[in-house]
Amino acid sequence: MSSLRIFLIGGLTSYRALFTWLTPWILIPSFILGPIFQILFFAYVGRTAGVGSDSFFLIGNAVLYASIPCLFAMSNTIGGERQHGTLPLLLASPAHRIPLFLGRALPVIINGFGVSAVALVVGALLLQVPLPLASLAPLALVVAVATFSCTGLGLVTAALALRVRETAVLANVVFGILMIFAGVNVPLDALPSWMGSVAAWLPLTHGIAAAREVAAGASLVSIRTDLLVEAGLGALYIGIGLAMLAWFEREARRRATLETI
């Protein structure tokens, strides 16, 4: 019962307290204007370069932007605690680490899903990309799975935040890597083979591919492999993230470096 409380109430409290982007002054530019302008930018670059379609760039960039809350909010779970001087108190508490950190991921998944959904709808209206009504529910499922998967990667960046002071830089770098590798703006088969191999192990790659197929009219059954791989990668990254958190926490205690890095 205590773990459930930490998971739900602790997670929500942490999200509201640490993710300082919830003011409209940050929320609207970062979560609404940012993705819409990036969709328009790449759609127009694609038109100029004669590559891809508006739909391709719309879906790729809308799903990619789910990663903004996933990466930044998760990094803030450590960076924000350190900034406020509460990281030692948090790590000295007897709370179980799994509900403690997974609880912090839940609001982030919902946030990421919302960002993608708004970007998809507004982007589709601006670029006049038709999204069939029948595709909306499967598309929502795919975006939810992709957001879950990316939050797993966010947990890894949160763990790295125990070692890296510049969490904003870290999250931006991971975002940039996802943008290049995950088939957001360049089809996977147009990437060099080594990049394609890396992409296969990144969150969002399979989610974006599945979202494009669903938007083109494919059924959920036909994209189940991509969906399962995406969910599996999410679980894998969550596992890695929790393991890294435990390891870095032990190291930080041993070396007394929790607040000195």
């Binding site: 790449f42 670059v45 370069a49 931006n172 770098v173 940039g176 703006n185 360049v186 089809p187 147009a190």
Partner: peptide, 16 residues
Amino acid sequence: LWPLFFATTIFLMYRA
């Protein structure tokens, strides 16, 4: 790094 991420994407798009 940040502009390089975008430039790389754009170069890959043009190459494609």
